Simulated scan of single mutants.
Amino acid sequence: MSKPRERILNTTMILFHQQGYNNTGINQIIEDSAVSKASFYQHFKSKDDLCIEFLDKRYAYWISELENFISGAQTVEERFLKSFDFLIFMNEKENFRGCSFLNILSEIPSEKVEIHKVIRSHKKALRDAFNKDLKDDMLSDHIYLLFESCIVTSQLYRSNELIKKTKSIVQGLLLSSC
């Protein structure tokens, strides 16, 4: 059996992603992790601290999966187009659950400053990566916004249709920029 902290994090990775932040209680995490309440609080001062660690681990997982998915791309254009294919792949893998960051953002009040800061930081890292690849702020931000909107709309409609259409739009944007 894994260590208590590991079990708590592994359980949280599933529950926060599948159920959301507000629908997942500390008692459920404790029970599903098979740890004591004292053990939980020994590792995490609060649910917010656990949420921050969840967001960090989820980002590391998601970015690693994205990088693996697009690793065979030969050009910047192909990297971007494959990134939209990645969204389709993740929707099928995770049953259109959407973005954990945006889901949690929609659940928490603005007073949870530290969680908001972590969400912004991870979203900024993705946005910066788009810009690094394209070296054109306007174009990279345009594609980044399309990418993020694809995540939200595919979750809303439980369909990859708009991702496929957006991929064609992005291809046109990339071709016209060269």
Rank of each mutant, 00 (worst) to 15 (best):
A60K: 14
V170C: 15
E31S: 15
R58T: 04
I30N: 00
R97K: 09
A73L: 08
K117H: 08
L156V: 15
D49V: 05
Q155C: 10
D136C: 07
S176N: 12
K93S: 06
Y41F: 15
N10E: 15
V118C: 02
F40R: 09
L146T: 06
V113C: 01
K82M: 13
K82W: 06
E67K: 11
D137K: 13
K165E: 11
K37D: 09
L105N: 12
R120Q: 10
S106T: 13
L9F: 02
F16M: 02
V76W: 03
K112H: 11
D56Q: 14
C150E: 02
R5W: 04
F147D: 06
N91R: 10
A38R: 13
F40W: 09
I119V: 03
S168L: 11
N22I: 04
L173K: 09
N68H: 06
S149T: 05
E6W: 01
L81H: 09
F89R: 06
I151K: 00
I88K: 05
L102E: 11
F16D: 07
A34E: 12
F40H: 13
D136K: 13
L102Y: 10
Q28L: 14
F44Q: 12
F69V: 11
H122S: 00
V118I: 13
S33K: 10
Q19V: 02
R5D: 07
I30D: 01
S2L: 14
S159M: 05
I8F: 03
K132I: 10
L174A: 11
A129F: 04
T24Y: 01
Q28A: 14
Q74L: 14
E148G: 00
E92A: 04
R120H: 09
S39I: 08
F40D: 03
N27C: 01
F101V: 00
F44R: 08
C51S: 12
N10Q: 14
L173V: 09
H43N: 15
